[in-house]
Each structure stands twice: as C-alpha cells, then as structure tokens.
Design a protein around this nucleic acid. Structure first.
Lengths: 254, 254
DNA sequence: TGAATAGTGTCTATTAGACAATATGAC
DNA sequence: GTCATATTGTCTAATAGACACTATTCA
C-alpha cells in the first residue's frame, strides 16, 4: 500500500477484510401446458443458488459470488464470478446495493456488493454442460425466499426482487427475458411473471398505439415488407414485435 | 481477522486499503429578486465541496467524505462524515453507487461508496457557526462541473446529478428542498431548478385534480377548517399544500 | 393602475377503462 | 365445430394540451 504521508489517517485504522460481490441471477422458466391446442406456456421466476462447500455456512445454499481482486473493479468481479460459477456470460448485469452491516460475515469485516443478473432461459441451456449441476441450482423465487440462506442473502434476495419488480414496470428490462422477436402475449406473460399484480385490459392497444408509449416496441417485418407473425403459441398467427432503443421517461408530475 | 479454515480463499489475497464514502450534498439556494412587488425568488442548485488540506490532491476541491470504520456501516459512516465535515444532520441521505476503478485513489486499493444528501437551505443556515467556512463551500452545480475536482469526484458528481434529476421526476424528493407547507409555485420552481427542461402548462390542475396523481399533495387547512393560504410570494394569497405519505407507482406499460 | 403571481374557462384531441364481439387455423 | 389465443369495435368518462381570461392585492 502506498503511504507516503504521515498524516494519511486511514493507515492508522483497520482496513476491510474483503469486498466480495453477490449476484442474484434471475431467469424465467417456461413449461408447456400440454393443452389440446397450442397455448402459452406457464412461466415462473427462478433464482440461481449455489450450495456452499466450505466454512462458513457450509452446505447451505447461497448466492453465487466471490472476492474482488485488486486487479479488477467490482463489476468485473461480478462478471467473472458469474462466468466461473454458473457458466453464464454476456448477460444483463447491474449493480444495485451494498451490504455492510456489522457481523454479516463471520470471516471478518466484509463489505459485499450485490448485483442483479437477468438471464434468458435459453442461455442457461448450454450452461449445463459447463458446470456441475449438483451444487448450482435454480429455485422458484418463492421457494428460495422460504429457505434458510447463508449470510444475509435472504435480505439481499428480497431487495433484488423489489428492484427487479420496480424496473420491470419502469424500464424495458423485460427484453432480457424474451427472444429478439416476441409476441404481445409473451411480453404480457413476462411482466406478469415478475409482477403478479400487473393487469391491463387493453394492453395491446396501449403499448402499440398511444402516443406517449409508441416507439418502445415496433412491429417486425418480413424481408418482403409484410408484417411478420408467429403461430408458435396459437393457431392464429400473432404479430411479432421487437424492442427499440427508446427508453421512456416517466414522471409523477406530467 | 477471523480465519479458522485453511481453505478460506480470501486470506491468500490482498484486501482493500479502505472503503470510504463520498457524499454529494445538494441544496437549493434562493435569492430575492428585488422586484417592485412581491415575487418568487430565483433558485439555484448548489453542491457542497471541501478543500483538501493533505495529500493526495492537496488544496483541490473534493466531495466531503471519509473512511468507514470497522464499527459502522457505510451508511453510518456517511452520516457521521456529513455531520463532522458540514455540521448537517437528520437530512435525506441515500446510497447511490460504488466506485472501484483501478487507480482511482493514489493511496491504494480503495473502493468508494457514494451517497446523495439533500438539504434544505435553512438547515445550512445554523451550520455556518459550527464549521470553518473557509474550506467548506457551496458551489452552483454548473460551476462545480467545470472545476478540476480531486479523485474521480467529477464523475461521481455527474452521476449524482443524473440520479437526482431522475428522482426529482419519479419520486417525491422535491419535499427535501421545500418547507412542510409550500405553494404550487414553489414546488414548480424546485422541480425546474433541478430539471431545467421541465415545463408543464397546466401543472396546478394535473397535480391537484387528476385521479392518478391526486393524493401526492394535499391542501393545508387552518385550525378552523378553512383553506390556508400564504402571501409570502404574491399579493394574492396562494393555497398551501403539503406532501402526503403517498408514493406514486409509475409504469411504462399502463 | 399596473406589477406579479394565482387560479379558472373553454375547446378539441387523445387516452383510459370496461366489455363485447369477431378472427384464425389446427385438431 | 371447438379450443386457445389474437385482435377489433364501441361507448363513456377522464385527461392532455393549448390559450385566453379573470382574481387578488398593494405599492
């Protein structure tokens, strides 16, 4: 450590024993419903947990993460741990809070940085080969919340859930859980999966034809210029949409 | 440091040299306009800076802050430094980001936690007695942004400004810059001071009588039940309002 | 009387909100 | 013909957006 001034006060004090990251990885798992006709799948919000092998909290389930190295930023650490522990790369990864309560980690004075990762379930499909599946698992969020997690990870998970719910309604992060091209029905389902109380009778009209929201998503066209549809979830083909670059600005005053 | 397991990996690595906090303290300064009749003041968003006395960045202006102690959370550290360095207590104080870029601090591997403090100018009035005014000063935000600040504090200030602008429009933080009871004109001015591009022709009607926003503020009544007005800024008395507990929920989808 | 802010009237276009109705196409 | 989703019609009430207008008070 550089310390070429006698009055540099921090050098007289204890320094932290580590600045790890904890990563709350959310994904939405779809299951076919086995109806007689084509239908939308059921969707469920899941969170990835890892079973600890060592002290402290040995054998308990915890959020993935690890200690930041002196050669990287906390964001780089989160990205590295995400790749190492779950095999996932190039996904939405976002810092959301710090946890520094005294005694939160029996290993010492450890200030943890919590990240939110949003992963499409297809990304996790190839993952399975990379990583031993026995100690890394997806849990439905309501199950994870009922578990006894290591450290203060239950609190972190609760905070992450609150954050993702807010962002689902105020930003376009829904796109992280959807393919490039999707139907209005899929988008609606994704929103409802994260925010169960969301309901909007005339959803399709609001999202496609009110002036203030127009531009968030746009219709996908075929090469020949006609509207592109999909009949993956229905007999009648549904219009496909994609998100644009537009990020809507919200205000309580206008 | 507790380390009773040989395979506790962090113990093999270097640990951070400190986890300080940096506090971006915003206030709005009002100045009377000296018009012939009563009038609204001009308002300007200011930020509090402190002139460094020691290495590194000696004599440069910087954000107030300091190192977190092992006996406190980062939030407690920010609150303590705020009190110690500026004499301000019991104000809105909110965590907003972490800064961990390599080489951001010549003293070593130092991960900083940035807070946003919102202070009413009246709070700062009594402060002046407590603290030596020569090395703690308020700067108009546009001036501060043009200065050469210590560390990465310019970047932190820019991020803080972005954050406060977003929150001004999406939450009720305007109340931090207003007295308990205020007029619509004052509220409108506060919003415009932080977000200059804000303009809303029928502001009074929207904020007081549209269903979705009704409840954010409420009229103040006199003890006898009549509407309470104020003629501090105008000949014609203006209705006084106060913020309620209601926090509006925004959504891009409805 | 006019400066300076406070607040209302009025008109049109757009949006919200609630339901009903129709469209599509494979099984 | 039926199922399951997709999409449009229709009606009323509420809100947006733009401007003009009136109200208040006191120096």
């Amino acid at each position: 450590m550089v310390d070429n001034e006698s009055n540099y006060s921090a050098s007289n004090y204890r320094t932290p024993d580590g600045a790890p990251t904890d990563i709350v990885i959310f994904t939405i798992i779809s299951k076919d419903r086995n109806t007689r006709k084509k239908s939308l799948p059921t969707r469920e919000l899941n969170v990835m947990l890892i079973q600890r092998k060592i002290w402290p909290y040995e054998s308990m389930w915890a959020l993935p993460g690890g200690f930041t190295l002196e050669t990287e930023t906390v964001y780089a650490c989160a990205a590295r741990e995400l790749k190492e522990e779950t095999g996932v790369a190039n996904v939405h990864l976002e810092y959301f809070n710090v946890y520094s309560e005294l005694g939160r980690d029996p290993r010492g004075w450890i200030i943890s940085h919590a990240f939110l990762a949003l992963v499409d379930e297809d990304e996790l499909a190839h993952r399975k080969a990379d990583v031993d599946a026995s100690d890394v698992r997806l849990f439905p969020v309501h199950e994870a919340l009922a578990m006894d997690l290591a450290f203060d990870h239950k609190r972190i998970l609760e905070d992450a859930l609150h954050e993702i719910r807010k962002k689902m309604l105020t930003t376009t992060i829904a796109k992280e859980f959807l393919p490039e091209e999707f139907t209005i029905g899929e988008l609606y389902q994704v929103i409802q999966t994260v925010v169960p109380e969301f309901a909007e009778q005339n959803f399709i009209r609001k999202i496609t034809s009110t002036r203030s929201r127009k531009g968030i998503i746009e219709e996908v066209l075929n090469p020949d210029g006609t509207l592109k549809g999909s009949n993956r979830f229905s007999q009648r083909a549904a219009q496909l949409y994609r998100f644009t670059e537009v990020e809507p600005q919200l205000s309580i005053y206008s």
